[in-house]
């Protein structure tokens, strides 16, 4: 098992290298340049060229990439063109809010989705099932920006139950209750999509598991309906679900771009959006690299989890 994980980690190195190459060159394809931020309307072509030289943007892309890569290997993600702050500092400030938002959304989504998926499977092709599956489709289909704006309008603007956005109330201490109040709407928006997706997977997986011969065996033992479902059905049904959980967790780290924007949530998604609009390549590369690392690590964790949950899988 340990040698398997080490092998997977070694394999991750070329993958991550490839990701940085592709990202770096794709970013360069976008029109505009980081230098545009500093160019005043009356700047002469000479002063523009001087600025580009100072920022190192006059060199070939390969040279720029090499400089970025050697910095990275020294543990330095570079400096933001926009703010002059270290990229690692910027990301560090944003990771906390993003993880708070995403972990809460995932937990809420799963707490809702897994029981509903099981209930839907138990009432397959009955009104309860249709209702749950219909609701899950709604959760998947409603765009985040729309649901977000609708919720802000109803609950923040009209009813004034919760704040319309931000991490905490500015100027006041921002205690725990205050932060939770700020979390409610963005968590609802994010978990609607995650839960909608998860319900459908849990339902399908559970329907499949409950049709298996070993469920008949369990029932033939005279076990109660709950034991049959939870001990014999659910454990088997959750095996394929691990993949979906892995995908959700990987998506979590890079932040929710649209939702963070709608709710002015100071997370990684917002950082990435700002970096794109400012052509702040260093920040964008940092966020992308973080997402790539997260996906690689989560994939390894998913495979290890399979081995732990399903005794038929072994990595020796």
């Amino acid at each position: 098992m340990i040698s398997y994980v080490i092998r997977r980690l070694l394999l991750a190195v070329p993958i991550l290298f490839g990701v940085t190459v592709i990202n770096y060159f794709i970013i360069q394809l976008a029109p505009g340049s980081p230098a545009d931020l500093y160019i005043t309307p009356d700047a002469t072509p000479e002063s523009q060229e001087l600025l580009r030289q100072q920022m190192g943007l006059d060199k070939p892309i390969i040279v720029q990439y090499w400089k970025w890569l050697t910095q990275l290997l020294h543990g330095n993600l570079g400096v933001s063109y926009g703010s002059g702050q270290a990229v690692s500092t910027l990301i560090g400030q944003r990771v906390g809010p993003t993880l708070t938002l995403m972990v809460t959304a995932l937990v809420v989504a799963y707490l809702v989705a897994i029981p509903l998926g099981i209930v839907a499977a138990r009432h397959k092709n009955k009104p309860t099932d249709y209702g749950i599956v219909g609701a899950s489709f709604l959760g998947i289909s409603v765009p985040h920006f729309f649901l977000g704006l609708a919720l802000i309008y109803v609950f923040a603007v009209v009813l004034k139950w919760v704040p319309p956005g931000g991490l905490r109330t500015i100027g006041r201490g921002g205690g725990f209750v205050d932060q939770v109040r700020h979390l409610i709407l963005p968590v609802i928006v994010l978990s609607a999509g995650i839960a909608g997706n998860m319900i459908r997977y849990v339902r399908a997986s559970m329907v499949d598991a409950m049709g298996q011969d070993y469920i008949r065996t369990a029932r033939a033992k005279g076990l109660g309906a709950w034991t049959v479902v939870s001990k014999h059905g659910l454990r088997n049904a959750l095996i394929p679900i691990i993949t979906i959980i892995g995908m959700d967790v990987a998506a979590l780290v890079s932040g929710a771009v649209v939702t963070e924007q709608v709710f002015q949530w100071p997370g990684l998604g917002q950082l990435a959006i700002n970096a794109i609009s400012q052509r702040d390549y260093a920040v964008l590369m940092g966020v992308n690299l973080l997402a790539a690392v997260a996906i690689v690590v989560v994939n390894i964790c998913t495979d290890v989890a399979y081995g732990l949950v399903d005794p038929r899988i072994s990595y020796s």
Binding site: D213, T217, R219, P311
Partner: peptide
């Protein structure tokens, strides 16, 4: 069920819970 009347099924390969 399983007490006074018990049953053995046709498919031993799939009748036991794999996990």
């Amino acid at each position: 069920r399983g007490n006074d009347i018990a049953m053995v099924f046709q498919e031993p390969m799939t009748s036991l819970n794999p996990v």
